[in-house]
């Protein structure tokens, strides 16, 4: 029998430190698959975030750099400008890209840097203990909103819609990982975002709705159902720009 599905070459054999059912594992695999399929493993440079994915460089088998919290797009801008022949992407969570790094994110997007951004939105701070993130839904219970988030604490920040309004941004799509069919759609969006950079199109962002079973207090399957039934209503899927 022929092997038709296995670990992509760009993903190391190391077991990940992620919790059972965490979306980061799926997202790492998708990125590695896309890098392999586009045959850019020798050209790609990843910028790892601060957050649960902080040691993504231990899992991907290609060049990676690390940035201070939220500053991945500033580091990516420098690397891409100095090495325009490389394919540079950032992989950031919502605490990194949408909270402490909002400034860098908006300005890199507005400058129209030819970069690929992978934005993992799990509506919570995972690494630090499940506190409220800018993307936390109204009513969602977190460590810092034990009775559920109220509007006084801000509405869920829609980074994709926000960035889509900027002239420098060329491609924005929101995808999810709550079912295998959605994972395959996410892979197509990532392929497009990387292809855009190779073709010189410009700033491309893929927002991935990703489960955090541990800090949502749900089983992995219930977390997937929560994305499908609740989260998508606040963060609708599809091509935004």
């Amino acid at each position: 029998m022929e092997k038709i599905y296995s670990r992509p070459r760009s993903l190391r054999e190391n077991p990940t430190h992620y919790c059972p059912g965490c979306g980061h594992g799926i997202a790492h695999k998708l990125v590695a698959q896309v890098v392999d399929e586009l045959d850019i493993r020798e050209k790609v440079i990843a910028i790892a975030p601060v957050g649960c994915a902080v040691i993504a460089y231990d899992y991907w088998d290609f060049d990676c750099s690390e940035a201070a919290h939220g500053r991945a797009l500033a580091v990516a801008t420098a690397i891409k400008r100095l090495r325009p022949e490389n394919v540079v992407f950032t992989y950031q969570g919502d605490g990194d890209l949408a909270a402490i790094g909002t400034n860098e994110t908006i300005h890199a997007a507005n400058r129209g840097e030819n970069l690929t951004v992978i934005f993992i939105n799990n509506a919570v701070y995972g690494m630090t203990g499940g506190q409220m993130a800018p993307t936390t839904l109204l009513g969602q219970k977190t460590a810092t909103t034990p009775r559920g988030r109220v509007a006084q604490e801000g509405l869920p920040l829609k980074i994709s819609e926000l960035l889509a309004g900027l002239g420098g941004v060329k491609y924005v799509e929101r995808v999810s990982m709550h079912a295998p069919a959605e994972v395959l759609k996410a892979k197509r969006a990532l392929t497009q975002a990387f292809q855009n950079q190779i073709d010189g199109v410009g700033f491309s962002l893929v927002e991935i709705l990703s489960p955090c079973p541990t800090y949502w207090g749900k089983s992995p399957q219930k977390s997937a159902e929560w994305i499908r039934d609740v989260m998508i209503k606040e963060f609708p899927l599809g091509r935004i720009k």
């Binding site: 022929e2 038709i4 296995s6 990940t16 594992g25 799926i26 695999k29």
Partner: peptide, 16 residues
């Protein structure tokens, strides 16, 4: 099953 596996633990084989 392999597509959704976050830990790449499933390999799939098929008769050619």
């Amino acid at each position: 099953c392999a597509v959704i596996c976050p830990d790449c633990c499933i390999e799939v084989y098929k008769e050619n």
